[in-house]
């Protein structure tokens, strides 16, 4: 498969997954904000704003929607993600299914003239849910309508790598919020924050089924990081990446090394002692290590699959009017 195509499919997977996570984080915090204690000084939008490198000041829900939903430039903007996935889909029309293309193009067209007022008119939750469902359906269509070959695998690696990075980012948001509040386990704010973390990963219901309704920080950590049977856990994401890579990798040394890196990461996740991390107060350091591991996989993918193994020609940047070669 051409590297450009592989990278493009990987990009579509990442964009769609990213849009869904951003919208879910906004939704969960929208609900929390409605229910929060008016005495509480905590600004939950601040942590989100920092996690996504947002420039808005002061952070408010309105400002974050402008930047993380409506903006066309911001790397985490839902609209940018969907437009970029759609453009990718158009260029890679021969590699994705007709169903996926129609689905992608449909949601793209529905966001053309979007404004915050329209989101309010539709209802924030309804809008958020629509985007979330679109993303779920897109991945569902990919699994049900594509041949499960290289194209499907690169799309999948993109989805799970973005998911892994997002888990780290969500953990970081929650850590910050918790750090801003007085440390006292079992306080309502604490319970709500851990619950929000689960909800941000669509994991609250599965968590209750796997354990029970009691929100215990160590169990939550274990659930979102180590439970490989939970599709939105870090362990599951890395396992899926590892499996896809196992099929794709050739004799190429860099590719084999990447497989080994993913394998090692999985082992490290298995032996994690969440209780100990929380007790020793090393959550911040730990989250940053996880984040670093995921970023390393992303960089290694770029090197081993998306650029050629021998020195490449200089990057070809489309000039203005590039492609406007006179044709007969």
């Amino acid at each position: 498969m051409l590297s450009r195509i592989a990278r493009g499919l990987y990009g579509i997977g990442r964009d769609v997954e990213r849009a869904q996570n951003v919208i879910r984080i906004l939704e969960v915090n929208h609900k929390m904000n409605l229910e929060r204690d008016p005495e509480d000084e905590l600004n939950i939008w601040l942590a989100i704003s920092e996690a996504f490198g947002s420039q808005v000041d002061p952070p408010s829900e309105f400002a974050l929607y402008q930047e993380l939903v409506l903006d066309f430039e911001h790397a985490y903007s839902v609209r940018r993600c969907i437009r970029s996935a759609r453009d990718g889909g158009r260029a890679m029309r021969d590699y994705i299914s007709e169903e996926m293309w129609l689905h992608l193009n449909g949601v793209f067209l529905s966001l053309t003239d979007l404004s915050f007022e329209q989101i309010l008119a539709e209802g924030r939750s309804e809008f958020n849910r629509r985007i979330e469902t679109f993303c779920d359906a897109f991945h569902g269509l990919a699994d049900d309508t594509m041949i499960q070959g290289s194209a499907w695998r690169f799309l999948r690696i993109g989805k799970f790598l973005e998911r892994a990075l997002m888990i780290c980012r969500i953990l970081e948001i929650k850590r910050k919020v918790l750090a801003l509040a007085p440390q006292e386990e079992g306080r309502p704010i604490d319970v709500h924050q851990w619950q929000a973390l689960l909800r941000s990963l669509s994991g609250y219901e599965p968590y209750r089924r796997a354990y029970d309704a009691r929100i215990k920080p160590a169990r939550v950590m274990e659930f979102v990081l180590q439970r490989s049977d939970f599709p939105r856990s870090l362990a599951h994401s890395i396992l899926q990446i590892r499996q896809a890579l196992g099929t794709l990798a050739s004799e190429n040394a860099a590719q084999l090394e990447l497989c080994a890196t993913a394998e090692l990461f999985l082992e490290q996740l298995k032996v994690l002692d969440a209780r100990e991390v929380l007790r020793s107060g090393s959550l911040e350091a730990y989250v940053s290590v996880l984040h670093k591991r995921c970023s390393e996989i992303a960089q290694s993918l770029e090197r081993s699959f998306f650029v050629s193994s021998r020195p490449a020609s200089p990057a070809i940047v489309p000039a203005p009017h590039a492609g406007l070669v006179p044709q007969q």
Partner: peptide, 24 residues
């Protein structure tokens, strides 16, 4: 056959290659 763009191609030692996920 493959559809390529300029950026997918590279010349090395006077031979034209496509950049693929399994090398040139």
């Amino acid at each position: 056959v493959r559809l390529v763009e300029g950026g997918d191609l590279v010349v090395d030692d006077d031979v034209l290659y496509m950049k693929t996920t399994s090398g040139l």
